[in-house]
Write a protein that binds this DNA or RNA. Structure first.
Length: 224
DNA sequence: TTCCAGGCAATAC
DNA sequence: GTATTGCATGGA
């Protein structure tokens, strides 16, 4: 008999179909990039295509998107990313040297702009120091502004490392289904998924996206 | 108007 | 070690 973690995945996938995370501003194939079944922004998704990011620029875009979306809705992040793209600033070398004041203004729509501009500049320097190599989770966590969820999001969606992303939605889902205890830590919940699912980055990417989609559709929000 | 969103670091206890 | 607080915009 299949365990509940796998059954939940299969039922969410059946209900919502592949989500096409992580959204990117520009996809090479213009036919895809929209998903009318999705809540919120429908831009930049690529259902059933797990080959993204295809370019170095897209990889970096995912990294800074992961930072910009900290406690922030995606449409707001998209506005900030568009501002950066217009000036061709989705580029580690350029962002590592930009003035923080200037960057704050550009990313203003994403909120917390003074903190996030600092985070982006620090991260850009770190990113350059990698010289294209995949960072370890510990390395990412040592960077100011990168916490557990952001580190795992970057690894999973930018670097295709099969590490499970836990967020508020994940907790809400598991908790409502009595699959976890409220006192469980981030890493305990992460392991709950990782020990029950084979380490395939495509499944981890899809599962996390499905959890987010499912919770977004639950109308009466349970208070924190 | 109030509430909240794909968290994090700093501070308080 | 765990709990609380500041950060900020835009949409519902």
């Amino acid at each position: 008999m299949k365990n509940k973690i796998i059954i939940l995945y299969e039922s969410l996938l059946l209900k919502y179909n592949p989500q096409g995370w992580w959204p990117l501003l520009d996809l090479h194939d213009s036919k895809i990039g929209s998903n009318p079944t999705k809540t919120g922004s429908i831009r930049g998704y690529h259902p059933k295509d797990y080959s993204y990011p295809k370019t170095e620029k897209q990889k970096f875009e995912i990294c800074i998107g992961a930072i910009l979306t900290q406690n922030t809705s995606w449409p707001n992040v998209e506005k900030a990313l568009m501002n950066l793209k217009k000036k061709d600033l989705i580029d580690a070398k350029k962002l590592s040297k930009i003035s923080q004041t200037k960057l704050s203004l550009l990313i203003k729509p994403s909120g917390y702009f003074n903190q996030k501009s600092k985070k982006l500049i620090i991260f850009s320097k770190f990113y350059q120091s990698l010289n294209g190599k995949t960072p370890s989770r510990e390395e990412l966590l040592s960077v100011w502004g990168i916490g557990l969820e952001t580190a795992d999001s970057i690894l999973l969606y930018a670097y295709k490392v099969p590490t499970f992303v836990v967020d508020a939605y994940t907790r809400r889902t598991l908790s409502s289904m009595n699959l976890m205890k409220d006192y469980m830590t981030y890493d305990e919940i992460k392991l709950l998924f990782e020990k029950n699912i084979k380490k395939d980055y495509r499944i981890y990417q899809e599962y996390h996206a499905l959890i987010v989609e499912n919770e977004k559709r639950i109308k009466p929000r349970i208070k924190k």
